[in-house]
């Protein structure tokens, strides 16, 4: 997805303007002429300058016959777009469900879906997904004690296993 510099320049100027408007709410340093708003405002000014230069360039590109925006060939086929959406969707899925379902279940579903989409072999996908999730759970959940969300499970698999081993001893 590419856009003409005219559009990116305009977007940057809007962003900088919004930011500079926000800085007016910052209080000044007591006893100083400037405060927390100074640095962001300087930055904002610099971004506006860059945005204007980009817009100038964009206008020339437009005059030279460049379109305002176009989509790259790689993303044109339905499969290309879907692959991009699968990656983004997988992350969104994790953000949305890892809290309720827990790391193990969410990560397994996510891996399975991605492997089926990209690799296509169901048996391979199931095996790799299980091994990957268990390995990550062991590495981060047990070795580094990262509190991966449990969700529907009472405890992470690696922790359960280690507790069992400890109990047997």
């Amino acid at each position: 997805m590419r856009v003409n510099d005219l559009i990116s320049g305009a977007l940057l100027i809007i962003l900088a303007a919004a930011m500079m408007a926000y800085t007016t709410t910052f209080p000044p340093f007591p006893g100083q002429k400037y405060g927390p708003s100074l640095f962001p405002r300087l930055l904002g000014g610099a971004i506006v300058l860059c945005g204007m230069l980009l817009m100038l360039r964009g206008r020339k590109q437009l005059a030279a016959g460049q379109p305002l925006g176009f989509i790259d060939d790689a993303y044109r086929p339905a499969r290309g777009w879907m692959s991009v959406m699968m990656i983004i969707g997988a992350i969104v899925f994790y953000i949305a469900f890892s809290g309720t379902l827990g790391f193990v279940v969410t990560a397994f579903i996510l891996m399975l879906a991605l492997l089926l989409w990209f690799n296509g072999k169901p048996l391979n996908a199931v095996i790799i997904a299980i091994v990957a999730v268990l390995a990550v759970d062991w590495f981060f959940g047990w070795m580094f004690r990262v509190p991966l969300p449990l969700g529907v499970l009472p405890n992470g698999p690696a922790n359960m296993l280690m507790n069992l081993v400890r109990g047997a001893r």
Partner: peptide, 27 residues
């Protein structure tokens, strides 16, 4: 095969980000 690596790396990215702040905000 790279088509197996991509999902694996994505999982590492997600868990790696999560591990820094222990919250889904990092993701």
């Amino acid at each position: 095969p790279r088509n197996i690596l991509v999902p694996l790396i994505l999982l590492m990215c997600i868990v790696g980000s999560f591990a820094i702040t222990n919250s889904v905000n990092a993701v």
